[in-house]
Amino acid sequence: MTTADPRLPARRGSAPTPGRDDAPRATGTRRGGTRFGGALWGVAPFAIYVTLFLAIPTFLAVATGFLDADGALTLDNVAALADPFVVSGFVTTLQLSAVTSLIGAVVGALVCYALIGTRSAGPLRSVIDAASGVLAQFGGVMLAFAFVATIGIQGLITILLLDTFGIDIFAEGVWLYEAPGLILPYIYFQVPLMIIIFMPALESLKPQWAEATATLGGTTRVFWLRVGFPVLAPSFLGSLLLLFANAFSSYATAAALTSQGQSIVPLQIRAALTSETLLGRENLAGALALGMIVVMAIVMTLYALLQRRAARWQQ
C-alpha cells in the first residue's frame, strides 16, 4: 500500500496486467507441471489456513442467522431484520458512512492534490505517509479518547467555546456518545485512508499526458478538466466506496465511545453477542452479520467494477 508502485524498481515501466499475458506464462505452467508437488507445498498450507479462519467463520456467521436456539432451520432471525430498531440501525450506519466517506474523500483528495510535485521520497511525504498510516490503521479506540479529550464534556474545545464565546456545544444534550458524535472521529480516520489509497492513483497520471496537453496548446485547466479528472474519476469513486465500506464496518471507535449504545449495526451485533444468555438473541447477531455482508457485497462489487475501469489508464 504505502509502497506505491512508482517507488519500486519497475524497470519495465509498467506492471504486467493480470489476464492479458496468459501466452508467455503458459510456458511456465507447462514446465511447472513436472514440479507440481512443489507448487502444492507452496499453496496448500495457505489454502488450509484461509479455509479454517476465513471461509468457515464467514460461513458460520451467516449460517447462524438461519438457526434458532435449538439449531433448527428458521427464518425468524432474518425476519427480525425488518424490526424498526434494526432498520434504524442500518439507516443510521449507512448515513454515517455516506457522510464521512464523502467528506473524507474530498478532503483527502485535496491533500493528495497539494502533494503533487513533492518528492515521494522527501521528508514531507514521508511524514504524511506515516501519519496517515497511524491514523487510518491504528486509530479505533484511541481516536475515541482523542475526541473525548477534544469535544467531550470536559474537552479542550468544549471548554474553550463555552468560556470564550459562551457557546455550549452540548446545549441540546451530549451528542458525542450518540451517532452524530461519530461523524468527527470517523472523518479523522477517513481522510488519512483516502490519502493512502488515492495518492497512488494520482501518481499514475503520466507526465506525458500533461506534456501532450501543453504541446496541443492546452492550459492547466484544460489538462485537469479533459484529462486529469476523467482519468481519475473511477479511482476517486472507487476510493470513495472503500471509505464507505471502511466506515460501515468500523466498530472500535464507536464501541470505545459508548459501552451501552446500539445506534449503529456493529454495536447492535455487540449487544446481541454479549447478551447471549437471552434466549435466541445469539442468532440475531448472525442475521445482523448477514445484513452487513449483503451491504458490503454490493459496495465491493461496485468497487471491483470501478477498479476495472480505473486500471485501463494505469498500464
Binding site: 479454517l52 451485533i269 453477542l273 458490503m296
Partner: peptide, 20 residues
C-alpha cells in the same frame, strides 16, 4: 481471497470466529 477480508467486517468475522 486475499482482498476478501476488506469486504467482511471484523465485527461480522467475530460472530463466526467465536465458535471456531
Amino acid at each position: 481471497i486475499c482482498l476478501l477480508p476488506i469486504s467482511i467486517p471484523a465485527i461480522v468475522l467475530v460472530v463466526g470466529l467465536a465458535p471456531v
